[in-house]
């Protein structure tokens, strides 16, 4: 019985990480593309744009980090 639970936990961890990485990947790529456009349009603001981009990417990354923590818990705590 416990082996089935373990297998389900591992499978769930893989699914959780895979699905949880979809959204942040899309969002961060979109942010970086928009930042590229902004820098191409006004190169003198490159520092400010890069800073804002990094902060925004880190915020949108947090859901991916949550899924990482959840899948680590599934692997090591269940």
């Amino acid at each position: 019985m416990s082996e089935i639970v373990r297998a389900a936990a591992l499978l769930g961890a893989g699914l959780c990480m895979g699905m949880g990485a979809l959204g942040p990947g899309l969002g961060e790529g979109f942010t970086a593309g928009k930042a590229c456009e902004g820098i191409a349009r006004s190169p003198e603001n490159a520092g400010l744009i890069t800073r804002t981009m990094l902060v925004g990417q880190a915020v949108s990354e947090s859901t991916g980090i949550y899924s990482l923590v959840i899948s680590l818990l599934l692997i090591f705590a269940v």
Partner: peptide
């Protein structure tokens, strides 16, 4: 919570 978990998850994930 999101502030602290972001830092923790990034560093621990990189370490693993």
């Amino acid at each position: 919570i999101s502030l602290s978990f972001r830092l923790f998850g990034n560093i621990l994930g990189g370490a693993i």
